[in-house]
Design a binder for these strands. Structure first.
Length: 881
RNA sequence: GGGCGAGUAGCUCAGCAGGGAGAGCACCUGCCUUACACGCAGGGGGUCGUCGGUUCGAGCCCGGCCUCGCCCACCA
């Protein structure tokens, strides 16, 4: 039985992907060695949250690095793609809490331990599901090194980092203004707050003087917080109020007496120039309060309801309280005006609740000393962003960072390694639970209830996953890593924090390059969100088209850092490309000897088209390598596509068909080259489309697996400029004739005769390529034009260097042809004008590089020749009328 | 209030030491030419947002403007 009979007509991703992934896993190809003499190449996967299912963003996060990993593995590097998952404290806790509440239970009822047990179960379930989903993307991770941010080892790293930073004074505990999410019931960091523009109102409220007539009118967007006011402030320079400073005001709706103070913070231009000061509920007011030693009165509970001591408002949510208070103020004549404005409000990036600012006792990372070296490292180029513009965003953030609030009032996460003495209140930060208080020896200690921001552990990912703080072999082998591939949406959350953490704790940057990718939008250019329900499940796409096609759609024609719209049509064209390659492979296989031994084929046996495709292969390899090294995956993929489809399939295979048919030594040479270049293209394509390429490889009965073969060396594919220019000439001629045939709608079976008019060398090329001209351009006989001859009943087609006169009198309308030639003349004349214009321009001739000028001169010469030819043709044709 | 990105063929997007624009899809014409109709051959279609500048030469560099999108920012 011929080999080909066992090869299906279409590549079937569904069955092949499963089989091949199994083969890869078994072969150990994903596994990176440690220690190893090979050059390491490491990428850490951005760990997906264990909260849900994979989306297109994850497909990008994993497919892009996988291209690089597979490329470097083929290059012979010790390539490690380390996978993992993130415990995602706040997101997971919210999900589990919701699940519990759906059962009619509460977190508190389960208790901390019960809740954590439940969450670990959740983790097992989702973690495994995510791993299974990731495998379906075809990514070549070292699964034996899979990490989870709450793993023992990673937790050790977290504690180590916390203690070290604390001991250096870079972590502190203190009462600061923080962002409080009344939905998640925890503090969150600045970057977890999303600002959105909302329509609101500016309420003008009059605060009467305690003594005497009149009062002060303030403007506020949050009238309900007035119950927490402890002063009204004006700018000290404000002449309008200078004489009033020191006066006392009575807070409406209450009997509280508050002072009128002066503080530079107040903007005289805004509102009335008078600002109510609410230290408990506004960060700026808090600062003002500190400066003036104002009392802090809070009127909001953790769930953002009015506290019990707000009298009739107690228990109301903010909106209701606002409405009620405004109504009361109005009724009592304190409300003077309501002005509609739009303003920014902060919402929780997790649950969307309105964020409340409040002073709170929390843990913070002191950022300034950490940020500085992290800025320098990028500035010095120790770490480069691709594309570079994202460095600006990084710098801007790093240069203005404020201290990072890292404590969370959550249970799911790394618990803060701090204890308090119940007897003397001593604070103890330690790697392990202390037995007794170092100050008073009391054994009555309690541990801090809070956990750490989930990003605190993610920040250590590049080294904690390798066993740091232990000096493990893995750490020594793979760290620092080479590239990281995140979306631009997590530059602050993750990339920036990894950089400063790595520098602080390992003394090195965590990665040399940051390849930023854009967001995958829906086909209308909108973000994929749950609320729009426009998300596309990568696995569904894989079910239909296969993982290779999906990868293609995410890489082809995209540029680093740019958003991309997801369109199924693009996946389809990926699938079509796979089919194209698959059939080219089938064609080659059909024509190969079963033993595939071509050692008898010598270089002398190669024909010009063989030498041409090898020449082209040389440059294809070079270009693809260059693009991949520059992390230009889109361009690299396009280059491979073009080589495979345009050059190998559309030209080369067509060129050699006849030789294959004829057999003989020329046919054998063609088989050999066909086979060689097939092996080449599947290697070049493998990083992008691992499955089809591996499937083809397996049908070729070659040694081992494609995944662990080697990247082609361009030096092994000889360049041959002569072959290249010969083939260019031939292809141009073929194109020109095809063109003509199409214009005149000649049936493909109808052969035409041709006469070549060109200088000897060029004419010879065409005569040598007679077979190809015959098959690909439908030329029957071809001969050189003799000196004295003029071909009366022919039509001319030009190609660079010459002209073909096609004998087709019976097929051509002479009038139309003359018309066509006249139009052609006009076109050429315009070109000549343009070209002459340039060459007459002294500036151009003197200043442009000689090469460019010569090119232009050559063009002009050619145009002039063309014009002459056209004129001649018109003349001859005219005689035929 | 700053910063960034996008504006290129009907659509989705590439493009670059600055040297006369490409792909995929769609469209039109002709082909089931035994690898592939998930295909082959050919074709139409672009003043590269706009105005100005630099340059011998600009989609690419500089400046202004317009439209869309994103990010950052403690003026109530």
């Amino acid at each position: 039985m011929k080999k080909i009979d066992s090869v299906p007509k279409y590549f079937d991703p569904a069955t092949e992907e499963k089989r091949l992934y199994g083969l890869w896993m078994e072969s150990g190809a994903f596994h990176a060695e440690a220690p190893s003499d090979k050059r390491p190449f490491t990428i850490m996967m951005p760990p997906p949250n264990i909260t849900g299912v994979l989306h297109m963003g994850h497909a990008l996060d994993t497919s892009l690095p996988d291209v690089l990993i597979r490329y470097h593995r083929l290059l012979g590097d010790n390539a490690l793609f380390l996978p993992g998952t993130d415990h995602a404290s706040i997101a997971t806790e919210a999900r589990v809490t919701a699940a519990i509440e759906a059962e009619g239970l509460s977190k508190e009822q389960l208790g901390r331990e019960g809740f954590l047990k439940r969450t670990w179960e959740w983790k097992d379930q989702y973690n495994n599901r995510i791993i299974e989903q990731q495998k379906r993307l075809g990514i070549s991770c070292d699964w034996s090194r899979h990490r989870f941010t709450l793993d023992e080892g990673l937790s050790e790293a977290v504690v180590e980092v916390f203690v070290r930073l604390y001991e250096k004074g870079l972590i502190y505990r203190g009462e600061r203004m923080i962002n409080w999410c009344p939905g998640c019931l925890t503090s969150i960091s600045d970057i977890e707050v999303e600002h959105e523009e909302q329509e609101g109102a500016l309420y003008y409220i009059k605060y009467p003087f305690v003594d005497g007539e009149g009062g002060i009118t303030i403007a506020t967007t949050r009238p309900e917080t007035m119950l927490a006011d402890t002063a009204v402030a004006v700018n000290p320079e404000d002449a309008r109020f200078k004489h009033l400073q020191g006066r006392k005001l009575r807070l409406p709706l209450t009997d509280r007496i508050i002072p009128l103070i002066a503080d530079e913070y107040v903007d005289m231009e805004f509102g009335t120039g008078c600002l109510k000061i609410t230290p408990a509920h506004d960060p700026n007011d808090y600062e003002v309060g500190l400066r003036h030693d104002l009392p802090i009165i809070s009127i909001l509970t953790d769930t953002a309801n009015m506290t019990e001591d707000t009298g009739k408002y107690a228990g109301m949510d903010v909106r209701t309280a606002r409405k009620t208070i405004v109504a009361d103020l109005k009724e009592q004549g304190f409300l003077t005006e309501i002005e509609e404005i739009s303003h920014n409000v902060g919402t929780c990036s997790r649950c969307g609740s309105l964020i409340e600012a409040k002073p709170s006792l929390q843990w913070f990372v002191h950022m300034e000393p950490l940020a500085k070296p992290a800025i320098d490292a990028v500035r010095n180029g120790e770490t480069d962003f691709v594309p570079q513009r994202f460095e600006k965003i990084y710098f801007n953030w790093m240069e203005n960072v404020r201290d990072w609030c890292i404590s969370r009032q959550l249970w799911w996460g790394h618990r803060i390694p701090a204890w308090y003495c119940n007897d003397c209140d001593e604070l103890i930060v330690a790697r392990e639970e202390p037995g007794k208080c170092p100050k008073c020896n009391s054994t009555s200690l309690r541990r801090d209830e809070d956990t750490l921001d989930t990003w605190f552990s993610s920040a250590l990912w590049p080294f904690s996953t390798l066993g740091w703080p232990q000096k493990t072999v893995d750490y020594q082998t793979f760290y620092p890593t080479d590239v990281i591939v995140p979306g631009y949406d997590i530059i602050f959350f993750w990339v920036a924090r990894m950089i400063f953490s790595a520098i602080e704790h390992t003394g090195q940057v965590p990665f040399k390059k940051v390849l930023i990718h854009g967001m995958v939008l829906d086909s209308k250019g909108r973000k994929m969100t749950k609320s729009l329900n426009n998300g596309i499940d990568p696995l569904e796409i894989i079910d239909i088209y296969g993982a290779d096609a999906l990868r293609f759609s995410l890489i082809y024609g995209t540029a680093p850092g740019n958003d991309m719209r997801f369109r199924e049509e693009k996946v389809e064209s990926g699938r079509n490309f796979i089919n194209k390659l698959w059939n080219a492979f089938r064609f080659v296989l059909m024509n190969l000897d079963d033993n595939r031994d071509y050692s008898d084929v010598t270089a002398e046996m190669l024909e010009v088209e063989d030498r041409w495709i090898l020449h082209e292969a040389h440059y294809a390899i070079k270009d693809v390598g260059t693009y991949l090294d520059k992390l230009e995956l889109g361009l690299a993929q396009e280059r491979v596509y073009q080589f495979i489809w345009d050059l190998y399939c559309d030209w080369y295979i067509e060129f050699v068909k006849e030789r294959l048919h004829q057999g003989g030594s020329s046919g054998r040479a063609a088989q050999k080259v066909l086979f060689e270049v097939l092996q080449l293209i599947i290697k070049l394509l493998h990083p992008f489309m691992p499955y089809v390429t591996e499937a083809i490889y397996s049908h070729l009965d070659l040694d081992g697996l494609l995944i662990s073969s080697s990247w082609p060396q361009y030096e092994e594919y000889p360049t041959d400029n002569e072959a290249a220019s010969t083939m260019d000439c031939l292809m141009e001629a073929i194109g020109a004739v095809r063109n003509l045939r199409a214009d005149y709608q000649l049936p493909s079976a109808k052969k035409v005769n041709a006469v070549v008019k060109a200088e000897d060398a060029i004419a010879q090329r065409l005569l040598d390529g007679e077979d190809m001209l015959s098959r690909l351009a439908g030329i029957g006989e071809i001969r050189r034009m003799s000196e004295a001859e003029t071909l009366k009943d022919g039509v001319s087609v030009q190609f660079p260097g010459g002209e073909l006169l096609i004998s087709m009198r019976e097929l051509v309308d002479v009038k139309e042809e003359i018309q066509r030639l006249k139009e052609e003349e006009d076109r050429i004349k315009k070109e000549i004008q343009r070209s002459e214009g340039m060459l007459k321009n002294k500036n151009f001739v003197d200043r442009a590089p000689e090469e460019v000028v010569n090119k232009e001169k050559a063009k002009l010469e050619r145009y002039q020749g063309d014009l002459k030819q056209a004129a001649e043709r018109i003349e001859t044709l005219s005689t035929m009328l």
